[in-house]
Amino acid sequence: MHSNDPLIFENTGLAGSKISRCNLSHTVVTGCNFQGTMIEDCNMERLSLHNANLSRSRIDNVNYSNATLTNCNLKGFAILNCGLEGMTIDGIAVTDLLKKWHEG
């Protein structure tokens, strides 16, 4: 593997792990358990997650630019102190939704 080759994780148990200051851009993750994992200060641009469990995980200071979430369970999901410019939910700009909500 060369330094520019993407990482590939398949059916890996990483529950309770701490992932810090990593460049995970272009990484492919399939069928992995990240339950309760702490992910911080990582570049996750163009990261591909498929059938991954991130329940009870904490993700801080991570670059998710141009990411797409599809068929995800976001029950109890919280977004705090994040840049939302350009973010959409089902094609609707989140910043527009928040503006209308604040206007009452």
Rank of each mutant, 00 (worst) to 15 (best):
S17Y: 04
S65C: 14
C42P: 01
G91N: 06
M38C: 12
N51W: 05
L80C: 15
N23W: 15
N23G: 10
E10N: 07
S55P: 01
F34M: 06
L49F: 08
N81W: 12
F34D: 03
S57R: 02
L54Y: 02
W101D: 09
L97E: 05
R46Q: 05
G31L: 06
I59G: 07
S55D: 05
G31E: 02
H2S: 14
K18C: 14
N71T: 13
T95R: 02
T88V: 09
Y64E: 13
G16F: 04
N66A: 08
I92N: 04
F77L: 08
T70Q: 10
T68H: 06
M44D: 00
F34L: 06
G36Q: 01
V94R: 04
G83M: 08
F77S: 05
N63F: 08
N66T: 10
D41S: 14
T88P: 00
V94G: 00
D60C: 14
N11H: 08
N53C: 09
T68W: 12
K18E: 12
G76L: 02
T88Q: 08
C82S: 09
S3W: 13
M1T: 15
S55A: 14
M44S: 11
T88M: 01
V28S: 12
I39P: 03
T27F: 02
S55R: 09
G36V: 07
N63R: 12
G31D: 11
N61G: 14
E85R: 03
T12G: 00
L14E: 03
T88R: 04
M38H: 09
H2L: 13
P6A: 03
T95A: 02
L7N: 11
A15P: 14
H2C: 10
A78H: 11
N43F: 02
S65V: 08
A93H: 08
G16I: 04
L14S: 03
T70C: 06
E10W: 06
G91A: 08
V28C: 15
D41H: 15
K75P: 01
C42Y: 00
M87S: 00
N61E: 12
L84Q: 06
N73S: 08
V29F: 00
C32N: 04
E45W: 14
S17E: 05
C22Y: 04
K99C: 06
N33M: 11
I92G: 07
N73W: 07
T68M: 13
R21W: 02
H50P: 10
N81M: 11
I19T: 03
R56V: 09
I39K: 00
G86I: 00
G16L: 03
L80H: 05
I8G: 12
R21F: 13
C72S: 13
N33R: 07
R56P: 13
C72H: 14
V28G: 02
Y64I: 10
G83R: 09
L47D: 00
E10S: 15
D60Y: 10
W101E: 07
K100V: 07
I89R: 03
W101A: 14
L47S: 04
H102C: 09
V94E: 01
R56D: 12
S48A: 10
N61C: 15
P6E: 08
N43R: 02
I92W: 03
L49K: 03
V28F: 09
A78P: 04
D41N: 07
M44C: 07
R21A: 09
D60G: 15
T37Y: 05
T12L: 11
G86E: 00
